[in-house]
Design a protein around this nucleic acid. Structure first.
Length: 474
RNA sequence: GGCGACGUAGCCAAGUGGCCAAGGCAGGGGUCUGCAAAACCCCGACCGUGGGUUCGAUUCCCACCGUCGCCUCCA
């Protein structure tokens, strides 16, 4: 896998044999998640599924940031307002109501995309004491100091700050280029651990430094350590977190513990919409429900995402989504037919099966899902053209690969094969009609099945086959 | 301004110092078929431009052009 910290491919070596402990940076829930956010969780999902495919047990933690972060790190007095608070004030409800609403929506979207639930989903607001404890630890060690408007991490005490994931040293960056430099800070790049509350802040907590709220980075350190220990295997998130978020996390975590933080770092490249970044704050974003509203299956988006590399990102267009949907429909058609032809009996693949081996090699190579899909296509080919024995093997292969791909292959095949009694009766009647060359009647029945059950009947040399259109509302 | 990523057929996209540069979608032709639908078979690229290294580069190096991102809350 590619490690953002080393900027190169590295063999993965777990801390605990056979286990992957991973922390995935979760969303700030002040608004709906757009498909760009979802895309990065899809990438994290593939990582987890890949490890599980190879027999690893995983411990997967993803945070929910439900405490607003109004300021950026370079200026505690910035005019930026807390986004959750903004939403809450606009609708005149408690911030947690806002957070809860979008959190739920987020999990619904994940479910539609077959993204596995993390094992632990800690919320920032429920871990304030852990954050305070961590800050105290940093102060005690002299890595943090109390200033007029809050507590800051002293970056001068942590050599290499800002260069762990990024070749560009912070001091070459344009400090204060876009925001005022905060005079309370000792060093330009010191970042806030705790901020003193302003009266209008909707969310504030007691602390040894007065009422206030936590800095943006501290939650991830506090919560990852709580659930995964002070050192764990993999930390993942979007590329935007490279700097400053993850650099700050590394600094404050390692300064506090004196131990390495995460062994591997993974950063997902952004999804682009018509070649431009999609962002919550600059607008122009699209939700999963927009995709569904146009009649696409959420899993078509998943398939589209699998066709690209997480390190290069995805340039989303309706045309490419359409292509993914067509591909998914074809898979479902072929798999449905094979399932019906074999009575749903799939043969589990042998370890040395050529396709399985190539598939495993692809996903083991930095999660190359695009190459893995080519193997799935090979299996689809066998499922479409082979004899029954070959079809059974192809199905077994596809079901096996779907543990990583997560396209619900087995489920949709089953669903396609399962028919209501009435539909079965009509199909039988139609078969008789065709035997008797009564095409008028058989066409009527075909029409009927489509209108009443959404079942498309097709005639093949092996008899009738049917499918349910994968496209919603079609 | 600093740093970084990317540029492969109409579209999405994998990949490699040298056998015919994966796969998918769309398109064209064909097979099958009572009709329809599906499926199957066949067809497509001098790998952004210009140099360099090399026996040989799409793959390595340099320059240029173009697109995008980070440097500020964002997956």
């Amino acid at each position: 896998m590619y490690d953002s910290a080393k900027r190169s491919l590295r063999e993965f070596e777990p801390i605990r044999p056979g286990q992957l402990w991973t922390y995935n940076c979760g969303p700030t829930v002040y608004d709906y998640q757009h498909i760009g956010n979802l895309y990065s969780y899809l990438a994290a999902d593939v990582v987890r599924r890949t490890f599980e495919y190879f027999g690893f047990s995983t411990k997967h933690v993803m945070n929910i940031t439900d405490a607003g972060h109004l300021v950026d790190d370079s200026n505690a007095d910035a005019r930026g307002e807390d986004k959750i608070a903004l939403s809450a004030r606009r609708e005149n409800v408690d911030p947690l109501v806002i957070a809860e609403r979008y959190t739920q929506q987020f999990f619904e979207d994940r479910k539609k995309l077959n993204i596995l639930e993390p094992h632990i989903v800690p919320k920032a607001t429920e871990h304030i004491p852990a954050m305070i404890a961590l800050i105290e630890r940093l102060i005690a060690k002299g890595h943090a100091y109390v200033a007029a408007d809050g507590v800051y991490f002293d970056t001068s005490t942590f050599p290499g700050y800002g260069t762990r994931l990024n070749p560009e040293p912070p001091d070459t960056r344009q400090a204060g280029a876009r925001v005022e430099v905060n005079p309370n800070k000792r060093n330009t790049f010191d970042f806030a651990l705790w901020r003193k509350a302003k009266p209008e802040d909707l969310q504030q907590w007691d602390s040894p430094w007065g009422r206030g709220n936590p800095g943006w980075h501290i939650e991830c350190s506090a919560m990852s350590m709580k659930y995964l220990g002070e050192t764990f295997d993999l930390h993942s998130g979007g590329e935007d977190h490279l700097f400053p978020h993850h650099e700050c996390e590394i600094a404050q975590s390692e300064a506090a513990t004196g131990k390495p933080f995460a062994h591997y770092w993974m950063h997902t490249h952004f999804l682009k919409l018509d070649s431009a970044k999609m962002s919550k704050s600059t607008g122009g974003f699209m939700r999963l429900s927009d995709i569904e509203a146009k009649g696409f299956d959420p899993l078509a988006f998943r398939l589209l995402s699998l066709g690209t590399s997480y390190r290069k990102g995805l340039d989303f267009t309706w045309e490419s989504l359409e292509a993914a949907q067509n591909r998914l429909n074809k898979w479902r058609g072929v798999i449905g037919d094979a399932y019906q032809a074999t009575g749903g009996r799939a043969t589990a693949p042998r370890d040395e099966d050529e396709i399985r081996v190539a598939f495993a090699a692809a996903i083991a190579d930095d999660f190359n899902t695009a190459a893995a899909l080519a193997q799935a296509e090979a299996a689809i080919g066998h499922a479409a053209t082979g004899d029954d024995e070959t079809k059974r093997r192809a199905l077994g292969l596809l079901f096996d690969m779907d543990r990583v791909l997560g396209l619900s292959i087995k489920e949709s095949a089953r669903k396609a094969a399962a028919l209501p009694e009435e539909a079965k009766r009509l199909l039988a009647e139609r078969e008789d009609a065709r035997k008797n060359q009564d095409f008028k009647r058989s066409d009527e029945l075909r029409d009927d099945l489509w209108k009443r059950f959404g079942i498309r009947v097709k005639d093949t040399k092996d008899g009738q086959r049917w499918e349910r259109d994968g496209r919603k509302g079609a």
